[in-house]
Each structure stands twice: as structure tokens, then as C-alpha cells.
């Protein structure tokens, strides 16, 4: 039992330096909740920007004199 734990530990220690820097960075950044929330919001805004013509309900530059400063 203790032996297997020790071999597992030494195996992970000897394997760790083999991990590529990019993989290590990805693994470490994915663990961070704040960074992932930020990344999710950024991706959402990028999709919003790309899909703007499809998502926007109205023409953004069309004016309407009957709708001046109306909430909803």
C-alpha cells in the first residue's frame, strides 16, 4: 500500500519535467476560476461582435422619431 503510493509519487515526480511548458501553462490556467469566467465572457463578447448582424434586433443606426428616449 505504502509502496504503491511511493512509486506513484516518484513516477509523477519523474514525469513532471517531461510535461511541455504550454501544457503546464494550460493545466494551471484552467484551474483558476476567475480566469475561466473572464475567458468565457470574452468569448461571449467576441461571438456577439461577430454575429452582430444576426443578433441585433434592429438596425443600430436607423432612427425613429416616434421612439425617442422610450424605455422598452
Amino acid at each position: 500500500m505504502a509502496e504503491t503510493a511511493m512509486t506513484a509519487a516518484s513516477a509523477s515526480r519523474s514525469l513532471a519535467p517531461l510535461e511541455r511548458p504550454l501544457q503546464r501553462a494550460l493545466r494551471r490556467v484552467v484551474k483558476r476560476k476567475g480566469a475561466m469566467i473572464g475567458l468565457g465572457l470574452i468569448i461571449a463578447f467576441i461571438l456577439l461582435a461577430i454575429g452582430a448582424p444576426l443578433l441585433a434586433p434592429y438596425d443600430p443606426i436607423a432612427t425613429s422619431w416616434t421612439m425617442v428616449r422610450k424605455p422598452r
Binding site: 438596425d59 443600430p60 428616449r69 422610450k70 422598452r72
Partner: peptide
């Protein structure tokens, strides 16, 4: 809502 020129 809409703005001062009636834009969405």
C-alpha cells in the same frame, strides 16, 4: 430602450 434619436 431607445436613445435620443429613437435608435435601439
Amino acid at each position: 430602450g431607445t436613445d435620443d434619436l429613437g435608435r435601439d
